[in-house]
């Protein structure tokens, strides 16, 4: 069985590691990949890291990207355009709470659109 994958994008590697730890206490099977910090692990975001994370989290059910601040969203959008896949989406939701809800929904075997809808309704 495959799940909607989740990519956590933050300016800080520590932020996404912490969020993943919190989610993993509850949700074990949903793919969660991290794209925190720049290529040098400094504060910032990296398209390359996001692309790698998308590839790892990818299943035919698609991937959801969660981000923290504005410039992370721009990099996320570029990574999606470059992937040339149409089942990768970004949602506007608080990174921690939103990712938690997304993981729960995905774990219930929801489709990408259903997970997105749950997040749009919830925040």
């Amino acid at each position: 069985m495959s799940y909607v994958g989740i990519v956590l994008i933050s300016h800080s590697p520590k932020v996404v590691e912490g969020i993943k730890d919190i989610i993993r206490q509850v949700i074990h099977d949903v793919p969660i990949e991290l794209a925190g910090g720049t290529d040098e692990n400094e504060i910032g975001t990296s398209i390359e890291k996001i692309q790698v994370a998308i590839d790892k989290a990818y299943s035919e059910k698609g991937v959801l990207l969660m981000y923290d601040l504005g410039s992370a969203k721009m990099n996320a959008e570029m990574a999606i355009e470059m992937s040339e896949k149409d089942n990768i989406k970004i949602v506007e939701a608080p990174l921690l709470e939103g990712s938690y809800v997304a993981a729960v929904e995905s774990g219930m075997n929801k489709s990408l659109d259903e997970v997105v809808k749950a997040l749009e309704k919830g925040f």
């Binding site: 720049t38 290529d39 504060i43 910032g44 975001t45 990296s46 398209i47 390359e48 570029m78």
Partner: peptide
């Protein structure tokens, strides 16, 4: 890939 901030994208 190298700039890091908003200026990158």
């Amino acid at each position: 890939s190298k700039v890091g901030g908003a200026a990158g994208p």
